[in-house]
Amino acid sequence: MSEILTFKDIWVEYGEKIVLERVSLSISEGSFVSIVGPSGAGKSTFLRLALGQEAPTRGQVLLDGKALLPQCDPDRGVVFQRYSVYPHLTALQNVLLGLEFAKSPFLGRLYGKARRDAIQTATDMLTAVGLQHNLNIYPSALSGGMQQRLAIAQALVKHPRVLLLDEPFGALDPEIRLEMHDLILRLWAQHGLTILMVTHDLQEAFKLATRVIKVDKRRHDPHAPHRYGSGIISDVTPDKTKPVPLDVTTLLLPSSDEV
């Protein structure tokens, strides 16, 4: 499998505060990578770098071998924990939006046959996430789980090279979360997606991902807690033939050469 997303010797600093230090990571096409770690360790910084929301202080982020501009572009789709869908658009219009942006630079709207085709594409995508009966409903009338389904459909209709998920199921009920796990695994397999997911739920990470990466500080100075940034302290490939063990923390202990 070829490399699709590469972090090359990344440092992220906010003034005195060092968030990430000398981080290198290659993500191969078709993999499902999950980033875990304690709060404030810089998991989400990873996602923001990949998204282009911010640029590393040093180092490079490469997509298909090309350095990313520090801005979001349609080759990377994203689903946030909240606010991913537009409240003023119905479910169908939310998914249509990406198609309209692509084909109508001035009006941002499609008419006639182009619109009918786009509606067909969008409806198919909404059917794939199980929202075929809610096409003309505004997001405020959808449950949290359905809103996240909509956000996923909205992102996937653009066929992004990489799908970035930022705690996408963190605000959902446990039951709904399980349904969403099945959905995302099915879409991942069907569409051959490459997924980078940030989560604080280790069970979720081990259940879904083909590769779990733990981010944390390697060194800690109690007198200057921001002096050292986080790095990758373990990089694990879960055994998919066995069920996820109840306690997965031991699987994430730092590998000996790193300490």
Binding site: C72, D73, V78, F80, Y83, Y86, A155
Partner: peptide, 18 residues
């Protein structure tokens, strides 16, 4: 919302309009 629109391919003008 603003970030998402950009990942959907919106230009500044399209983002403003839609």
């Amino acid at each position: 919302q603003i970030l998402k629109a950009q990942t959907l391919g919106a230009s500044t003008w399209q983002l403003t309009l839609r």
